[in-house]
């Protein structure tokens, strides 16, 4: 039980590389593009163009920030609807120009605030889920730290989903789960075990394809390894209708085994 909660703590450690660290380590020539063209620009989500060895890609990352000031400015990586709408705008742009999309996910969840609700947090996430499912270019998502519920999934309807070995992915925070179920947030460690939120759990549930080693995390060889994997994987993914059909099959299978084959 506590093993799972140890992972949660590791995933949240402030010393871990953030989205921008990954962008700087894996890609070259990153050009950040701002704004959702609707209402604002959310610093909790960073996106833009970059080079992945020979090819141009669109990269989108949830950014928690490092310094206290930067973390506050980025709302500790809890995006507003503008962040999700910016991400979708950049994905549609990638589709137009035939660029693969790479998403780096690290959030405790979509922001729970008054303004976020007023501007349609639920609608923004829903639209991303829908639109990502038929995007005509390869999409690979990597959970690099926390994968907090719908706010993480909004960048995770992809052809391949990978997780760092100490990343977690969950429908609800262990604290939230414990306070609902046991009326005691102190039982978070217990809830973490029950929620099956580790990378190993996600892989055995068929939700992710690959667990990435954290050996040499943050060092050039670490990023070189991920770069190599991305290049190879993008090479194996098709394009257009075939790609979209395979993505649908992938998504369609999620949780289907849980309802039993005899009912199919």
């Amino acid at each position: 039980m506590t093993a799972a909660y140890d992972r949660v703590k590791k995933a949240r450690e402030s010393g871990r590389p953030t989205g921008l660290d990954y962008i700087g380590g894996i890609f070259t020539g990153f050009i950040e593009l701002h704004g959702d063209r609707r209402c604002g620009d959310d610093p909790a989500i960073v996106g833009g163009l970059a080079r992945l060895i020979g090819q141009s890609v669109t990269v989108i990352a949830i950014e928690k920030g490092h310094s206290a000031k930067d973390r506050a400015r980025r709302n500790f990586g809890a995006p507003h609807p503008e962040g999700y709408r910016k991400a979708l705008r950049l994905m549609k742009q990638a589709e137009k120009f035939g660029r693969p999309v790479i998403c780096l996910i690290d959030t405790s969840g979509a922001y729970c605030g008054i303004g976020a609700e007023e501007r349609g947090q639920g609608q923004a996430i829903a639209e991303n889920l829908m639109e990502m499912s038929t995007l005509c270019v390869p999409v690979i998502s990597i959970l690099i730290g926390e994968g907090g519920s719908g706010g993480a999934l909004a960048l995770g309807v992809s052809d391949r989903v990978w997780m760092m070995e100490n990343a977690v992915y969950s429908v609800i925070s262990p604290e939230g789960c414990a306070s609902i179920l046991y009326k005691d947030a102190g039982k978070a460690a217990e809830a973490a075990g029950s929620l099956k939120l580790t990378a190993q759990d996600a892989k055995s549930l068929g939700i992710i394809e690959r667990i990435l080693s954290e050996k040499d995390m943050g060092k050039p060889e670490f990023y070189a390894r991920i770069r190599e994997m991305l290049v190879q994987e993008i090479g194996t993914l098709g394009r257009d209708a075939e790609l979209v059909a395979h993505r649908y099959e992938r998504i369609r299978a999620l949780g289907t085994s849980a309802v039993g084959k005899e009912q199919a």
């Binding site: 969950s170 429908v171 099956k196 549930l205």
Partner: peptide, 8 residues
């Protein structure tokens, strides 16, 4: 858990 999230 995650199986529910994936239903979204």
């Amino acid at each position: 858990g995650l199986l529910s999230l994936m239903q979204m």
